[in-house]
């Protein structure tokens, strides 16, 4: 990129640069448009990232230590980046921007799973949610790399490296909380037990994913289930914790009909954009 040179500083101990990965702006300026089906699929993926980013953002200034505050914020920003790519691409089907889709859709129009909408709880519960989602996302993006849709493949390539780190972050904390004190172990187990009820929704095959998967565009969620659950079980047992045997929560269909939290998340996320439409800062 041409502006990389001007952005680089040579005199500091640590040189900085922009790097050269794709950006949401670049994606928005592309000619290729998503079809209606691909757009609806991109929304499913994008809404998961957006909701989780919003939830994690709530930890900023509230994490147990300043360093962890930054780590969670970093992960939230990575996820927000994925949401920007996916919502931008989805919007190309309907002449909408990422902001139109993030700020001006109503509750029932979102397609996020309840796992990512679930409240943060304590740090253990947040790590439990991170663990499940990051292992799911890694399995998803590593397959989406082979998508016949070039844009989805490029987004997966960018996201994969980031969710790989999210996996590591969650796994490191799982080990430490699981094998830490009696209290940290108890909280980590409680966190896992709480969010585990929402895991199955991630692996539900909803339209239009099924038909897109047949065409090699999308990744069939049910195809990820065994791999992700096996990986999670292994690491949870390695941390000295118990794999929850919870019954799945009722109404796992990504429609949002059964989500008790989505409206509250959106109220906070959308209020500024809706009170001042078109505002920039």
């Amino acid at each position: 990129m041409s502006d990389t040179v001007g952005f680089t500083s040579q005199d500091s101990a640590t040189r900085i640069s922009m790097g050269n990965a794709i950006t949401a702006e670049e994606l928005a300026s592309r000619e290729d448009r998503a079809s209606e089906e691909v757009a609806r699929y991109a929304l499913i993926l994008g809404d998961d990232s957006l909701m989780l980013a919003q939830r994690l953002g709530h930890w900023i200034s509230r994490a147990p230590e300043l360093e962890e505050d930054v780590a969670l914020a970093n992960i939230a920003l990575d996820l927000l980046g994925h949401a920007r790519f996916l919502l931008t691409y989805a919007g190309s089907a309907w002449d909408k921007t990422e902001d139109d889709l993030a700020y001006f859709r109503d509750e029932e129009e979102f397609r996020s799973a309840r796992l990512v909408e679930h409240e943060n709880g304590d740090f253990g519960q947040t790590i439990a949610r991170q663990l499940i989602f990051s292992f799911y996302a890694y399995a998803l993006y590593s397959r989406l790399l082979a998508s016949t849709d070039e844009t989805l493949s490029a987004i997966a390539d960018k996201a994969l490296k980031e969710v790989d780190y999210h996996r590591d972050h969650a796994a490191q904390w799982l080990m430490r909380l699981g094998g830490g004190t009696e209290e940290s172990h108890r909280r980590m187990q409680t966190g896992l037990d709480t969010v585990w009820t929402y895991i199955e929704e991630l692996f539900i095959d909803v339209e239009p994913t099924t038909q897109l998967a047949e065409a090699g565009v999308a990744v069939l969620p049910s195809a990820l289930r065994d791999e992700v659950l096996t990986q999670l079980s292994t690491i949870i047992e390695e941390a000295g914790l118990r794999v929850p045997q919870a019954k799945g929560a009722f109404g796992a269909d990504r429609s949002g009909r059964y989500s008790e939290h989505r409206g509250f998340i959106l109220a906070e996320m959308q209020v500024l954009a809706r009170e001042h439409p078109g505002a920039t800062w």
Partner: peptide, 29 residues
């Protein structure tokens, strides 16, 4: 390697991760 700063972490492994988040966010390292 140049000294970049300091941080708190429970152990070396987590210190590396925190350092990655605090000191290499802009392709510094």
């Amino acid at each position: 390697h140049v000294h970049a700063g300091s941080l708190h972490a429970p152990d070396g492994t987590m210190a590396l991760r925190n350092a990655r988040d605090l000191y290499t966010r802009r392709n510094e390292g």
